[in-house]
């Protein structure tokens, strides 16, 4: 194929995130139990399961929002692999601002509603040391454009935005610092299907262009089919099946996954 100039990135055998035996209990009740997996650079992992299956608990433990009872979450930092569970709180916070990002289901949980759209994006930059007002504003405008928010809305508050726009603003706020790993909790939940499609397209492009790794929790199997390379199915806190996304959806092996897949209404 002489006409195409391929520029392949080197494949790395080093996982970006390596999770071993992660367990969280709420008293006698299991939140999630003995979860282990590796996530490689550029990979998108979907976690599906019904409400109460432990997928949100797992995401909170992975992202450092909640301390697990057991297990390790090893992240490949610029200084080498570090266990984020045992790392000092200050270090974990710094990582959450730089290498990691977290997109909440409800944009209100991830945005500052009283601050302008530009301020929401700029704030993240200032948190990692940006000080030049003009640079910050330029970068904010660039990111609003990437998530398809018109530059003339930069001074509006998120309250004046639709749900889909608020979610795109939350994504811009999270990605402006160039994270390597993004956690997403039902990122398309609560949105109209047409808005969902737009957001999916946006996320796919950003993942590809920035080489992002992502962990996406959702109950929507159509969303994971289009976004995730790999899939983990959770039930009652346990991972009952994991594998290539289309394999898990097209040829599910576990009874629960078969039930889940066959319960989706066809349109």
């Amino acid at each position: 194929m002489g006409m195409l100039n391929l520029n392949l990135t080197a494949e790395t055998d080093q996982p970006l995130l390596s999770v071993q035996g992660l367990t969280k209990r709420y008293g006698a009740r299991i939140g999630c139990a003995d979860v282990s997996f590796d996530l490689f650079p550029g990979e998108v992992l979907g976690i599906v399961g019904e409400s109460g299956s432990g997928k949100s608990t797992l995401l909170s433990c992975l992202a450092g929002h909640m301390p697990p009872d057991q297990g390790s979450v090893i992240f490949q930092t610029a200084q080498g692999p570090r266990d984020t569970v045992t790392m000092a709180e200050a270090d974990r916070r710094r990582m959450a601002r730089t290498d990691w990002a977290f997109v909440h289901q409800n944009p209100r949980d991830g945005l500052r509603m009283g601050v302008s759209a530009g301020g929401n994006v700029g704030e993240r930059l200032m948190a990692i040391g940006a000080r030049h007002y003009g640079d910050i504003r330029d970068k904010a405008i660039d990111w609003l454009g990437r998530v398809e928010i018109a530059a003339d809305r930069i001074d509006d508050r998120p309250r004046a935005f639709s749900g889909g726009m608020q979610q795109r603003l939350q994504i811009a706020r999270n990605l402006v610092t160039g994270p390597r790993l993004v956690f997403m909790d039902e990122p398309t939940g609560g949105l109209d299907v047409s808005v969902q499609a737009r957001l999916l397209d946006l996320l796919r492009g950003l993942v590809r262009d920035m080489g992002l790794s992502a962990i996406i929790v959702t109950h929507d199997l159509a969303v994971v089919r289009l976004l995730a390379d790999r899939l983990m199915v959770m039930k009652s806190g346990h991972v009952v099946e994991q594998g290539l996304t289309d394999q898990v959806l097209d040829d599910p092996q576990h009874a629960y996954t078969q039930l889940l897949v066959s319960s989706v209404l066809q349109v």
């Binding site: 006409m3 195409l4 100039n5 590809r208």
Partner: peptide, 12 residues
């Protein structure tokens, strides 16, 4: 499929 392989957008 070409963009996923890093082919420049205009060529793809």
């Amino acid at each position: 499929p070409l963009l996923n392989l890093g082919v420049p957008a205009d060529q793809a």
